[in-house]
Amino acid sequence: MVGGVGPLAVAYFYQRLIQLTPAVEDDEHLEVVLVAERVPSRIAYLRGVGPSPVPALLRAAKHLEAAGVDAVVIPSATTHAFRDDVARAVAVPVLDLLAEVGAALAGRGLRRPVFLATAPTARLRLYEPHLTTGTRPLYPTAAAQRRLDGLIDGVKRGAPVETLRAGLADLIAAGPWPGDADCVVLACTELPVIAPLGGAGPLPLVDVTEVLADAVLARHPTPARLTSP
């Protein structure tokens, strides 16, 4: 697992991976290696300021490969702007969060998703190549995007979670989203950390952290419990 790409978001991903694993005993959980490099801001770099995060991402991936992992996971949507660089640098598979989310939306029959993501993810339309034909994504207004960026920054700097949670719930409830919107995608991995408890409004929430955890578990089923004869 590549850390340092939103440290709290990565920690939350690991927490959800543990919670979603159908394990009873400690030794039934997945073997996980976490390498937390000090990765420069991907958001800043994609905005044209700050150093490239690629060297740090490649170091992390190569450390993981040397440790013997059979797959690399990057729990950050914006960082997937550089996923191909990472995938070319190592021989082990690098899971694709964006593709997994596209498949999850298609599998649930969701065709009009509202994507709540970082400004660079939205501007670059990172998810769109992975969406089923006929899916028409929606994005926040400029004003709502500024509020959303503030919430994401708040998670990164360690602001109180409950305050941020209330802010995200207000943003989702306020919309306004077109009448044919059929879900809200928490498309930045900082957002599931502050997801409104019990949802927010009539639209279902799609949690990309949970989608990625499900993809890891589908690829690495936990061993069956041993029982005495």
Rank of each mutant, 00 (worst) to 15 (best):
A215I: 00
H220W: 05
V206R: 05
V184W: 09
I43S: 14
V72G: 03
K156Q: 11
E128I: 00
L116C: 05
G102L: 02
T141K: 05
E31I: 02
Y127S: 03
F115M: 08
S228L: 12
I43K: 12
D207N: 07
T118N: 05
T163L: 03
Y45V: 03
P196C: 00
V206Y: 01
L30F: 01
A181N: 08
A61F: 06
E162D: 15
P176Y: 00
P75Y: 01
L164T: 07
L226V: 15
R38E: 14
A181S: 12
E190Q: 08
H29K: 09
R47W: 00
W177S: 08
P53Y: 00
H29A: 03
P22R: 06
L226C: 11
T135F: 06
L217R: 11
A67H: 04
R38C: 11
L171T: 15
C188W: 07
E31L: 10
A200W: 08
A144G: 13
V101N: 15
R136P: 09
Y127A: 03
P51T: 05
A89D: 14
R146F: 04
L168N: 15
R123H: 08
K62G: 03
F115W: 04
E28P: 12
P192H: 07
A173T: 15
A215D: 06
P51K: 03
D96N: 15
L46Y: 11
Y14D: 01
E65N: 09
C183S: 12
P176W: 00
P51Y: 01
T135S: 13
P7N: 08
H80M: 00
A66P: 12
Q19K: 13
L164P: 15
L97C: 04
P140H: 04
E162R: 15
V10H: 02
I152R: 06
V92D: 11
G150E: 05
D84Y: 02
A9Q: 08
A23C: 14
Y45A: 14
V101R: 06
V35S: 14
L212N: 01
G150N: 08
L30W: 02
P51L: 02
R16N: 01
R225I: 04
V54G: 05
R108P: 15
D96A: 03
I172W: 13
V161Q: 13
H220D: 08
T141R: 14
C183Q: 06
D180P: 14
V35T: 14
L164C: 12
E65S: 04
S41R: 06
E162H: 13
R157S: 10
A99C: 09
